[in-house]
Simulated assay, not measured.
Amino acid sequence: MRIVAPVLSLLAMTFVLSSCQTAEEIRAADEARCGSYGFRRGSENFANCLMNQDLSRRADQRAFMESNDDFFWGPTIVVGGPGYYHNRGYWRR
């Protein structure tokens, strides 16, 4: 039983680290995707496709961060307002 926990944690760390991609791998995947759309490497349309892939990835990251903001940080609390304070889940004056 003592060996199971370290082995499971090692497997979990291996799984998490194996899912990470380097910048070169992401660029190669984007180039392959744009090439599969029919754009020729070196053309303006190919460059626009790469740019749109990057913008889409960044928008997804922003949406993920914003959707999980309350989960990680909790609701916004205003400190030093005009006589308001938070007590037992309610804002009071």
Rank of each mutant, 00 (worst) to 15 (best):
R2V: 09
V4H: 14
P6E: 12
P6C: 12
S9F: 15
L10Y: 10
L11D: 09
A12N: 10
M13A: 15
M13F: 13
F15E: 07
L17P: 07
S19Q: 14
Q21P: 00
Q21D: 08
Q21I: 09
A23N: 14
E24Y: 08
E24F: 10
E24K: 15
E25M: 13
R27L: 01
R27E: 00
R27C: 00
A28F: 04
A28D: 05
D30L: 06
D30I: 07
E31M: 04
C34E: 02
C34Y: 02
G35Q: 00
S36V: 04
F39W: 12
R40Y: 06
R41P: 02
G42I: 00
G42V: 01
S43T: 15
E44G: 02
E44M: 03
N45R: 10
A47M: 00
Q53T: 00
D54K: 14
S56H: 13
R57F: 10
A59H: 05
D60P: 01
R62G: 04
A63E: 08
A63H: 04
M65Y: 13
M65K: 09
M65R: 09
N68T: 13
N68K: 12
D69E: 11
D69N: 12
D69F: 12
D69P: 02
D70M: 12
D70L: 06
D70P: 01
F72T: 05
W73L: 02
W73E: 02
G74Y: 03
T76G: 06
I77K: 12
I77E: 08
G81D: 00
G81R: 00
P82D: 11
P82W: 12
G83W: 03
G83A: 04
G83Y: 01
Y84V: 09
Y84A: 06
H86D: 11
N87A: 11
R88F: 07
G89F: 03
G89P: 00
G89V: 02
Y90C: 07
Y90I: 08
W91A: 08
